[in-house]
Amino acid sequence: MGKMIISSSIVLYKNNETVLKAAISSFLKITFPDVILYLIDNSPTDELRDIFDDSRVIYIHNPSNPGFGAGHNIALKSAIQQGSKYHLILNPDVYYAEGVLEELTDYLEKNTDIGNIMPKVLYPNNEIQRLCKLLPTPYDWIGRRFNPFKKMVEKRNDLFELRFTGYDRIMDVPYLSGCFMYLRISALNEIGLFDEGIFMYGEETDLCRRLIDAGYRTVFYPRVHIYHHFEKGSHKSWRLTKIGMQSAIYYFNKWGWFFDRKRRLINKDILRKINSKK
């Protein structure tokens, strides 16, 4: 295969050290010889500086806290300069077994039209997380949360979160979770990095959409899995709720609110492909 640099970045903010160490260890178990892990610490202090002693780890303290996507962009810019071929956007609350990244890398090597790939995501108790989604409408991101009619919400979730698929097959998905984004660097060179106008929540949606617009596939690959602690912070904090609302407004101002023809076409095409493979 020759020399192939694999890089990753984790954006930190006052993280639980035990949980964070599991994420770091998961990536560093990779068998490829040329790897780099960036820890971009947006915390006010650098208490996490010495959390892991490994020559492959680069720690950058960034207390200005410009946001999730902006933090990862610091790492991505460096990874591009270093000649990285693939880059993993990794949440600090994710962990996984050996071999996961190797299998995903092999699949990317064989399918050069894929710009982003995500494995099956499980809770620590092995329940599945429904993180495959269609491109969102304003109702999906704003209305669902405040809809008191649970049956109506569940019906929409079945479609929006592609629950009807069973999450048991490889499929193109236009909106994949930002907890684990395995990205092709050459695709990012073409479309650009995360939109720093989004502080947090929705930056992965925007990036997936730009990949699709450029002709790349964004793929769910359930043959390997990861574990994600996954706490919906935006549902527990009004501050994070406000940030989520601001991100949604930014996203829909950019791509369109109710009259987004491209969104309809992309979602329709995805559903057609999924249903044709039943």
Rank of each mutant, 00 (worst) to 15 (best):
158 D>N: 15
141 W>T: 04
210 R>E: 09
165 T>M: 01
172 D>M: 03
134 L>P: 03
245 M>A: 09
214 A>T: 12
254 K>L: 11
183 L>F: 08
219 V>C: 08
194 F>C: 13
223 R>N: 13
184 R>E: 11
195 D>I: 10
190 E>T: 06
182 Y>E: 12
135 L>E: 00
157 N>I: 03
165 T>I: 07
240 L>P: 07
217 R>N: 14
210 R>M: 05
258 F>M: 11
244 G>S: 15
263 R>C: 00
181 M>T: 11
211 L>I: 08
152 M>Y: 05
197 G>I: 07
140 D>H: 07
206 D>C: 05
211 L>H: 05
262 K>I: 10
151 K>Q: 11
172 D>P: 02
217 R>Y: 10
228 H>M: 05
222 P>G: 11
228 H>E: 04
258 F>Y: 13
187 A>V: 02
259 F>Y: 13
147 N>L: 00
253 N>M: 10
179 C>T: 08
227 Y>G: 01
179 C>R: 02
197 G>Q: 04
155 K>W: 00
191 I>W: 12
272 R>K: 15
187 A>H: 09
215 G>I: 03
189 N>I: 09
152 M>Q: 09
142 I>R: 01
271 L>N: 01
200 M>V: 15
272 R>S: 09
264 R>L: 14
153 V>F: 07
202 G>A: 06
194 F>K: 12
162 L>F: 04
163 R>K: 14
250 Y>E: 11
252 F>H: 08
226 I>E: 06
265 L>P: 00
208 C>R: 06
180 F>E: 00
223 R>Y: 14
219 V>G: 06
135 L>P: 04
194 F>M: 12
176 L>W: 04
259 F>P: 02
171 M>P: 01
269 D>C: 04
195 D>H: 12
239 R>C: 09
257 W>F: 15
245 M>C: 06
218 T>M: 06
262 K>G: 10
234 S>Y: 15
139 Y>H: 09
239 R>Y: 14
214 A>G: 13
151 K>S: 09
270 I>W: 01
259 F>A: 11
179 C>P: 00
223 R>S: 03
250 Y>V: 07
200 M>N: 15
254 K>G: 07
263 R>M: 12
246 Q>L: 02
174 P>E: 01
243 I>N: 00
223 R>Q: 08
254 K>R: 14
237 S>H: 02
190 E>N: 10
162 L>V: 03
142 I>N: 01
259 F>L: 12
261 R>Q: 02
256 G>E: 11
260 D>A: 05
243 I>T: 10
201 Y>V: 14
137 T>C: 06
232 K>E: 12
237 S>W: 03
154 E>A: 10
264 R>N: 13
252 F>I: 02
247 S>T: 10
132 C>T: 14
136 P>W: 05
171 M>V: 06
